[in-house]
Simulated assay, not measured.
Amino acid sequence: MTRLKTFQELFKRDRRPGDLVFAVLFLGFCLFLLANLRSQAQWLDNTATVAQPAFWPTVAVIGMSFFAGLHLIGSMVSPRIPGRLKEGIFWLRSAEYAVYFLIYVWSVPIVGYLLSTILFSLFLTVRLGYRSRTAIIMSVLFGLSVVLVFRTGLQVRIPPGQFYQYLPDSIRTFAMVYL
């Protein structure tokens, strides 16, 4: 037997842990995009409105800002479910990996792409809890294969590491070009 719901029951909303934090951050991000929209997208003279390069980005950012504002209002008026601190800490734990990636990007010009990539993949493997010999070997092989595919195979230009200048002359040129 199906039960009909009233309008209020249909749109009843509880504020989940972290919902208010997300709503504030997302609205802030939307307002940041809105403030920078004029410098990022052009409005041209003698062009139809819908053909303007800035028209659809403007529609999208205004729509995102409007719905982010509604989300924030909905979060503020909804009854709160406890557990916000636990949810916030969980979000911060995921930012840990962004910091690891920034350290990796910072280290590439210093120690080189090959060494940085192998150390980064090895570190992440150990950090995720895979400490067996097979996992370590696979991690090193993965790092080596990434370097070979991007640097040698696809010839992506990545600046050589400062560390390469200390290599012998016969190896230095090869390392700067392929590693």
Rank of each mutant, 00 (worst) to 15 (best):
F11R: 12
L34F: 15
Y113W: 04
L27Q: 05
F55C: 00
F150T: 14
Q42S: 14
F32D: 03
V59P: 08
I81C: 04
W106K: 14
F163T: 03
N36I: 01
V126R: 10
W106M: 09
S116K: 05
P53W: 01
L122F: 12
S145Q: 04
G83K: 01
P79Y: 10
I103H: 01
L119S: 10
G74L: 05
R133C: 07
Y100P: 06
G143L: 14
F66S: 00
V108E: 08
G153H: 13
W56T: 03
H71S: 13
P57H: 06
R172L: 07
P57N: 09
I110W: 12
N36K: 08
S78T: 05
A51Q: 11
Y113K: 00
S132P: 08
Q8A: 13
Y113F: 14
G69R: 09
I158C: 01
D14N: 14
A60Y: 02
M64H: 02
V50Y: 01
V108W: 13
L4C: 02
I136V: 14
K86G: 00
T2K: 01
T47Q: 10
F120Q: 10
I137D: 10
S139N: 07
L44Y: 00
W106D: 14
R131Y: 00
S139I: 14
M176E: 15
S65T: 15
P53Q: 03
V146H: 13
W91P: 00
A95I: 10
G83V: 04
R80M: 05
A48K: 04
L85G: 11
Q40C: 02
C30K: 00
F90W: 06
S65Y: 01
L37K: 03
R38W: 07
S94M: 11
F22P: 02
Q165R: 10
S78C: 06
L122T: 12
V77W: 07
K5R: 12
L92I: 06
L119W: 09
Y178D: 13
I158D: 09
L154D: 05
V59N: 07
H71G: 10
L124T: 05
D14W: 07
P82C: 04
V126D: 05
L34D: 02
F22G: 12
I136L: 12
F163S: 12
L115V: 14
Q155N: 13
I73Y: 15
F22D: 03
